[in-house]
Design a protein around this nucleic acid. Sequence first.
DNA 1: ACACGGTGCTTTACCCGTAACGTAACGCAA
DNA 2: TTGCGTTACGTTACGGGTAAAGCACCGTGT
Lengths: 342, 342
Amino acid sequence: MDNNVSKTNKVSLSIVAEAAGVSKMTASRVMRGEGGYSEKTREKVMAQVDALGYLPNRLAPLLAGDTTSTFVGVSIPDLGNEVFAQVLEGIDQKLGSHGYQTVLGLTQHTLEKEESWIETVLSWQPAGLILTGRSHSRRALDLLMNAGLPIVEIWDLNSSPLDMNVGLAHFDSGYEMGRYLVRLGYKAFGYVGTSHDTANAASRRLEGFSKAVSDGGGTLVRQFCLHDTANFYPGFYGTEQLLASGAKVECIYFQNDSMAFGGFQYCERIGLSIPRDIGIAGWGDMPISSVLRKRLTSIHVPHLKLGQAAAEAMVSRLKGEAVIDSRDIGFSLVPGQTVREL
Amino acid sequence: MDNNVSKTNKVSLSIVAEAAGVSKMTASRVMRGEGGYSEKTREKVMAQVDALGYLPNRLAPLLAGDTTSTFVGVSIPDLGNEVFAQVLEGIDQKLGSHGYQTVLGLTQHTLEKEESWIETVLSWQPAGLILTGRSHSRRALDLLMNAGLPIVEIWDLNSSPLDMNVGLAHFDSGYEMGRYLVRLGYKAFGYVGTSHDTANAASRRLEGFSKAVSDGGGTLVRQFCLHDTANFYPGFYGTEQLLASGAKVECIYFQNDSMAFGGFQYCERIGLSIPRDIGIAGWGDMPISSVLRKRLTSIHVPHLKLGQAAAEAMVSRLKGEAVIDSRDIGFSLVPGQTVREL
DNA sequence: ACACGGTGCTTTACCCGTAACGTAACGCAA
DNA sequence: TTGCGTTACGTTACGGGTAAAGCACCGTGT
């Protein structure tokens, strides 16, 4: 291996121009195909472009201020949660198809990491930012205000977004699930989720759920919030802890379907039949549900579409088109077979 | 909402300097804390930095050529496959902790998308690239050679990497699984996977598997490669197709655990008992396995660690430290309970 | 008295591509 | 021939930061 590759003998436009025997400006015009040169000149320049392997440096016009970058910073809590991976996929697909690049930032659900990522990414002059969640640190807000670039806050619907907003009403989705389960006759509920951050979307789902339950005369007997990613295993051992705690629950509401499936597996492992002995409800209508004999009772959310819509809003704004500042991507209840029937 | 935020009244160093009554250069020195100024000057400058909310523009020194960027381009096939999401998470964690930014590119398993992404991302002067897979288009190779920057090819172990390489021996992992299953007495095998790209890692696993099977006197009766993401549902309907095809198989090898679980679910759905009636083997030892009563027979791969190791190799190279050009991240067979016992 | 070194600052030049402007050469009509 | 437009270029300036060089001014030693 050549370890001294680092000697970046970068080919600049002036080098191409000199080699072709023309001025930088003429070469630049040829590169952009904007006309104002003869066919003979075009050939001379292009011959050198091919020979030298010239690739334009997009930083230069950016610095000169006559363009914006095509970077879009995207902050995502974590990728261990399949739901966020899908949102990111939707974002990157759409951004990419419009010639924009995704600059990723994983925040691990902390505002501090988000803040330091925002500071760094802003210093690279992104065209805009897509941020997951609606709460940001004081300093992050200052930075964002000062930067004055397009921002899409996703995931959560937000009555006063910084700029644009694409998401869904998490509280409402929790409320709808709670109401549905109460109507089925359940009274005593348990909850298993992750994270202690009261400001996040999952907490708002739990709030909505909790309200629906008490509105309907039921009780949220016990809730477990684990310090872990919202994936299968935490759902499994969270359920174990919940049931071991002695709480008498008829139905468990989970932060998402991955956790719900983990809980489902634990219940069956200890001999509980679902939904006869205990009900299980999740959130997200995630891919795993499609292969289960008993489809999980859940809330369907178009994750990929959410990401795409966010990217579209960003691209439209960057192209100077009219943009709806706020978009509710919606959700729908999936009855499933993991809770009793009416 | 202020829709006219776009008026980017960018605060530059000269503005800060002028406001503080010093030259750009002095302000620059204060910003970098490299000395050569009085305490009084430092205070004057910092007061203006705070007042104006100045954030340095990291593009400028980049253009001037006395620094490299802190962007690292990372190409990933898709995020619908949990395994790649984890690899990406590992990469971004490690890059981020060293002050580097991940610029994502989803290639959807196609060399054309990789090529166009490489071209675009190179024009933004990244510090290095991390690419999934070892095959690239002719033009991509030209571009990479010409750019002369650090490259880590991940996923697959590669006898002649472009630069650095972190991965595992996919062929061997397939071979080991095949040998294991043959030793258990299986003779007739089926395969369910995705993608028709013969150049990718999953194909190499299949080749290894196939070789082990024929070396051991068995037969790979039928194989299904679906045009889909390697997730639960394709595993489910791929298995349906396989079994409906009338092929007599005793054991099915899947591209990964997600597909294997989908297949598992299909088998149980139609009344087949696992492993009594049919054996199932996956790859990746993915999170879902941890909550199943019958752990999937699989190959354990430290995905997160693979991503971290790739990022570490990149960072070390960028810092000018000595780097091992190639690293085998390894794998290990997980016996599981979805195949018969010896 | 003058050389010398250090401190604290300013000035100049540069990176790369493009906008804006300048200009030489030519064609064509009055 | 003059006047004007067009074509096909070249020249200059710019943007944000930093390296390198320049330059006052001070204190100190001889």
